[in-house]
């Protein structure tokens, strides 16, 4: 059935039933999903290890977190195999983690949710506007038989005009644009901590012998930090926009990520997190690679 309306209580019940089965049959040790938070419209990441507790799981349009970040955390990693509730966009992270050998595909049972966009503090985030994975792909099981009608996809990405604006700028103006943004950075590293693809045990920003990036919040270190983080995520970032949601200083990480994703798409015809067989272009090497730029 093709629809744009979602009955969340049905979906929620299916998550609960499935989780119960998975835990009881010992197929997984833990279910990572959403639960009721203390404030309205703010569900919380919730971890269930006991089949009797599955009724704590909840699902609605406010379930915006990308939970796959937890899979590589020290607390959760040893609890494999896991089951995890994912929307289509979150499922791309799981693919990315498998492709980069961070988790084993057989260790994770993905409970895929059909999704017609989430609400963050009442607003539809830009990532949902042109979403191509409303019906999740690459998951272990899609919950319910409903199919979201994705014909409403518009040609232009909501950040298209911002991209145009950047493209029209001179290199200097563009530098100034990003400097203005990064100057506000307070180096809380929320962007890194919430990113499923920032899984390094020791981040380059934490290395001290030698130090690569000045840890002092200020123009020099901030620019280096944000630029290096962006470079490390080129072609790996799945545009879940969790970093821009979390940044307390409202730095335009959404635009930075989207710009780089477009570059990768245009240069390598690659979209991250879509295919278990394809490595991110900047992390692989092939003898046939174009090498005439090496002089």
């Amino acid at each position: 059935m093709t629809t744009t309306n979602i009955n969340y209580s049905d979906l929620q019940q299916e998550i609960r039933d499935l989780s119960k089965d998975l835990l009881e049959s010992k197929k997984v040790n833990i279910v990572i999903g959403y639960g009721a938070g203390p404030l309205n419209e703010k569900p919380i990441p919730t971890f269930i290890t006991n089949a009797a507790d599955v009724d704590r799981l909840l699902y609605n349009e406010h379930c915006y977190h990308n939970l796959s970040v937890y899979l590589t955390k020290a607390e959760i990693r040893p609890k494999a195999p896991w089951a995890i509730v994912v929307k289509g966009c979150d499922a791309r992270s799981i693919v990315g983690l498998v492709v980069e050998n961070q988790i084993k595909r057989e260790d994770v049972f993905t409970i895929g949710m059909p999704c017609n966009g989430v609400k963050i503090e009442g607003n539809l985030p830009s990532k949902c506007v042109n979403c191509t994975v409303k019906n999740p792909a690459n998951v272990s099981k899609v919950v319910s038989s409903i199919k979201i009608d994705s014909s409403a996809i518009i040609e232009q990405h909501p950040l298209h005009q911002d991209m145009e604006m950047l493209n029209k700028m001179s290199a200097e103006e563009r530098f100034q644009f990003w400097k203005n943004e990064f100057d506000r950075c307070i180096r809380c590293y929320a962007c890194r901590q919430i990113c499923p693809h920032c899984f390094c045990n020791t981040c380059i920003a934490e290395k001290s012998t030698p130090q690569w990036i000045s840890t002092t919040p200020g123009s020099r270190g901030n620019f280096a930090w944000n630029a290096i983080r962006a470079f490390h995520l080129v072609g790996r970032c799945v545009e879940c926009m969790e970093c821009s949601r979390s940044c307390p200083m409202g730095i335009r990480l959404d635009l930075l990520n989207h710009y780089l994703a477009e570059e990768v798409k245009n240069s390598y015809n690659f979209i991250s997190g879509m295919d278990f067989e394809q490595k991110p272009p900047l992390t692989t090497y092939n003898l046939k690679d174009n090498q005439d730029f090496i002089k």
Binding site: L124, S126, Q156, P158, H160, Q161, D162, F177, E181, G250
Partner: peptide
């Protein structure tokens, strides 16, 4: 923030 030209009505 640096002025956003978002076509959607994002806050």
């Amino acid at each position: 923030q640096n002025e956003s030209q978002n076509v959607t009505k994002l806050k």
